[in-house]
């Protein structure tokens, strides 16, 4: 479930508000969006991978709230870790082409 929105680095772009399929975030005038409906989160990670500044963290447990802090997520270097793993970050863009799984049947 969505756990953390780091309001210090959030740029108020509201991309998470648009990509969330279950309307978890609420846009706020002149400020970062808020996690308004946390229990609607279905743990799809869309917000996290779309966030251009890695300000969001989704915990893999879809049914419990752990109340993680920004500091704890930072300490474990979890912000942006999914984006990096799938090559959606500039530093790891080479990973976009490493999966040759689709060539197996060829």
């Amino acid at each position: 479930m969505i756990e953390v929105l780091d309001t210090d680095i959030c740029t108020d772009c509201n991309l998470c508000v648009s990509v969330c399929p279950t309307n978890v975030f609420q846009a706020v005038p002149d400020g970062p969006p808020v996690i308004a409906r946390q229990d609607s989160c279905q743990t799809c990670y869309m917000c996290e991978i779309y966030c251009p500044v890695d300000a969001l963290y989704v915990d893999p447990d879809p049914s419990h709230v752990y109340g993680l802090s920004v500091e704890a997520v930072k300490k474990d270097r979890l912000f942006g870790s999914y984006r990096q793993a799938i090559g959606w970050a500039k530093e790891t863009r080479h990973l976009r082409h490493v999966d040759d799984h689709f060539r197996l049947p060829q």
Partner: peptide, 15 residues
């Protein structure tokens, strides 16, 4: 890991 990054995400996050 290359073919199924999504599968490994919860494991990575739980160590």
């Amino acid at each position: 890991r290359r073919a199924q990054p999504n599968f490994f995400l919860p494991f990575n996050r739980r160590g």
